[in-house]
């Protein structure tokens, strides 16, 4: 047990790092994903095609392949920046594809009548999208977004596999190598992940109930 009690800071820092990676990834992925979703439903064919191909390609590449490509491949063509941000970029690009699909599903869930009514009022495409469709679409994507966020947090552990060992899984491995108490160290890490997941799930349930559009 002393593996954890004597190193609360190591564990805490790991947890903090994991949350940092996840938060940065999710925010960046949300920005890229929204942009992709707008491209995906725009009337401009090259944009629509690009978004469609991007989503189906990136969704079929394993995250670890993307991470390896970014972390070990980008320096080969002269793009070197901090490991943390390299990892975050790769993850954000990966999750953006899933986010785009979630947003698109939300957009498709908005009844066509809403669009038609907005157009009948003389709104432009941007106005229709910005003040009618997207707000409604985002409301009914709370639950899928939450499961995406959970996936982002869980998969932030893959950062350890490409060298960001400061995060929770990496720290756990280091602690285990020091103390050789696998049950305690891995158990504690698992508890951390379960707690984070539960917290996200509960928050999403509350938000969903508050924001749900009654139809």
């Amino acid at each position: 047990m002393d593996a954890i009690t004597s190193h609360p800071d190591v564990f805490g820092h790991g947890l903090l790092m994991s949350l940092q990676i996840s938060a940065c990834t999710f925010v960046l992925a949300a920005a890229i994903g929204l942009l992709l979703a707008v491209c995906r439903i725009s009337p401009v064919r090259p944009l629509r095609l690009f978004a469609a191909v991007y989503v189906s390609t990136v969704r079929s590449v394993p995250l670890l392949v993307l991470l390896a490509l970014f972390v070990f491949g980008l320096p080969e063509i002269g793009l070197v920046y901090s490991l943390f941000w390299t990892v975050v970029t790769a993850m954000a690009l990966y999750w953006a594809a899933f986010l785009c699909e979630t947003v698109r599903a939300g957009v498709r869930a908005v009844p066509v009548g809403q669009t038609e009514a907005a157009r009948a009022l003389g709104m432009t495409f941007g106005q229709v999208l910005g003040s009618v469709i997207v707000p409604q679409a985002l409301r009914c994507t709370v639950q899928p977004m939450a499961s995406l966020l959970i996936a982002v947090v869980l998969n932030s552990s893959l950062a350890a596999a490409v060298g960001v060992t400061q995060e929770l899984t990496g720290q756990t491995v280091l602690l285990d190598q020091q103390y050789a108490q696998p049950l305690v160290t891995f158990g504690a890490a698992a508890v951390c992940y379960v707690l984070i997941t539960l917290a996200i799930g509960r928050t999403a349930a509350v938000l969903d109930r508050r924001l749900a559009v009654l139809r």
């Binding site: 959970i150 869980l154 998969n155 552990s157 893959l158 350890a160 596999a161 899984t169 756990t172 491995v173 285990d176 190598q177 050789a180 696998p182 049950l183 891995f186 890490a189 698992a190 992940y193 379960v194 984070i196 997941t197 539960l198």
Partner: peptide, 23 residues
């Protein structure tokens, strides 16, 4: 189901990799 869905696969793999030899 709830626990295993909330634990990263990588953590589980490390647990098998480092934990099993220990026992």
């Amino acid at each position: 189901v709830e626990v295993l869905r909330a634990v990263p696969l990588l953590l589980l793999i490390y647990a098998f990799l480092l934990g099993l030899p220990a026992v």
